[in-house]
Structures are given as structure tokens and as C-alpha cells.
């Protein structure tokens, strides 16, 4: 029997299991170690494509437009996500600056672009040899893109300084809010198993080997 078609192994404990298709929205858990295994999602490719396009459109204003304007004793001050990175950089905390840049600016953008190109190629049924690498990179980068944590940090900052100055929210704040929503949505719409199955179905050398994973 072809091992890849009917069986799967739990990533948490390597227990071999029969693949089952749960009803949409329901999750399957490993009976041994309780690791969530799989959740069926509908129209994953189209959804991911739509979400990543809107995320990419809003990315530039979200990072470079000022988040908010503070006013205290007659002085105003505003800053963007990019300015926050620059302020670490100018204070010569290079390691922290690089981590802030990567986790809040680079990886979110990289993840959105990767998912966009993977979803687009799957949608157009266009196989390029780099496709598996792109999707693998998404898996590895996922944990390092943390815009939602940044958003909570912005809220905490607002509470911290609300006693000190009056705050006006600017375009960047709302764009960033939307950007975070698209990134969360892209993760929850991504059905990894479907994506890999489609890639496998399109890969020329594998087509006769196991068409239905």
C-alpha cells in the first residue's frame, strides 16, 4: 500500500493514524498525545489569496505612516512602526533593533508575500520548482512574525501615556490594525494539508505516483 495516501503520523508523538476527513470546522486530535492534527477548511486557496492581497495593499501605510500624534505642553510628537525600530537603532541597541525590525516589519511582509505567491500559483495552476520551498519557508517563519503582539504593545503604550499627553490617532494606526487582522486571518484560512496536496498534484514527477494524498 502507498504509505502517503491513507496514513498519517502525529507530529507530536509519531503515532501512525488513518487519515480521516472531519466535517468542515471540526478539528481532529491525536488519541495518544492530544496534539491537534487537522482542521478542514473551505476555499482555503481563494481566501488566502484575497486576504494576502488586502494585507499587502495596506502594508506600506501601516508601517510608514504615523500611528498617532501626542500633544503635551504645546508640543506635538508623532511616530510610526518604522520610527520605533529607528529609535532602537539610533540608541545603538542593535540586537534589539534588528529583532524588532524582523518580527514587526520584515517577517510579516515576507509571510504575506510568500503566501500570496503560493496561493496565486496554486490558483493559476502554475507549477514552478520553487513552490515547495516557498511554502516551507512560510512554516518556518510563522512563529517569528509577531504583529499581533506589537498591536497589544501599542495599546499598552496608549494607556501608559494617556495621562501624560493627549492622543490623536492617525492613518498608520488604523492601517496597522487592519494589517494585523489580515495576517491573523491569513493564518487561520491557511489549510496546510490542502496546500501541500495541491502542490503534490501539480508536481510533474509525482503525478502518477500518488495523485490523491
Amino acid at each position: 500500500m502507498n504509505p502517503s495516501s491513507a496514513l498519517t503520523a502525529c507530529p507530536g508523538c509519531d503515532l501512525l493514524l488513518h487519515k480521516i476527513k472531519p466535517p468542515a470546522g471540526k478539528k481532529v486530535y491525536c488519541p495518544c498525545c492530544n496534539t491537534p492534527l487537522y482542521q478542514q477548511k473551505t476555499d482555503s486557496i481563494t481566501k488566502v489569496l484575497a486576504i494576502t492581497i488586502s494585507g499587502l495593499l495596506v502594508f506600506t501605510p501601516a508601517v510608514f505612516m504615523p500611528l498617532m500624534t501626542l500633544e503635551a505642553i504645546g508640543m506635538t510628537q508623532s511616530g510610526s512602526i518604522f520610527d520605533a525600530f529607528l529609535s532602537f537603532y539610533h540608541q545603538k541597541y542593535y540586537f534589539a533593533a534588528v529583532m524588532v525590525f524582523l518580527t514587526s516589519i520584515f517577517f510579516p511582509l515576507f509571510k504575506l508575500s510568500l503566501l500570496f505567491s503560493v496561493a496565486l500559483q496554486l490558483k493559476l495552476r502554475l507549477y514552478t520548482s520553487s513552490l515547495p520551498y516557498l511554502l516551507r519557508t512560510v512554516h518556518h517563519l510563522d512563529e517569528w512574525s509577531m504583529p499581533e503582539i506589537y498591536l497589544i504593545a501599542i495599546f499598552i503604550t496608549i494607556i501608559k501615556i494617556s495621562s501624560l499627553a493627549s492622543i490623536d490617532y492617525d492613518t498608520g494606526f488604523f492601517c496597522f490594525l487592519f494589517l494585523v487582522l489580515t495576517i491573523i486571518a491569513s493564518t487561520s484560512a491557511l489549510d496546510t494539508r490542502t496546500f501541500w496536496r495541491e502542490i503534490e498534484a501539480m508536481k510533474p514527477s509525482l503525478r502518477e505516483d500518488s495523485p490523491h494524498d
Binding site: L67, M68, L70, A72, I73, M75, Q77, S78, G79, S80, D83, A84, F85, L86, S87, F88, Q91, A96, M99, V100, T103, S104, E143, W144, M146, I149, Y150, I152, A153, I154, I156, T157, K160, I161, L164, A165
Partner: peptide, 22 residues
């Protein structure tokens, strides 16, 4: 990943709260 929270707060604070000598 949630431990990065404090670093982000400081990053945003130091970018926004800069009223010169005040």
C-alpha cells in the same frame, strides 16, 4: 512569542514619547 511584548512597548514608547527636555 508573547514575551516580546515588553520590548515592543519600549520601542513604541521611545519613538513616541520624546518631548525634548520636558
Amino acid at each position: 512569542r508573547w514575551s516580546m511584548l515588553d520590548i515592543f512597548v519600549i520601542a513604541v514608547m521611545s519613538a513616541l514619547v520624546d518631548f525634548g527636555s520636558f
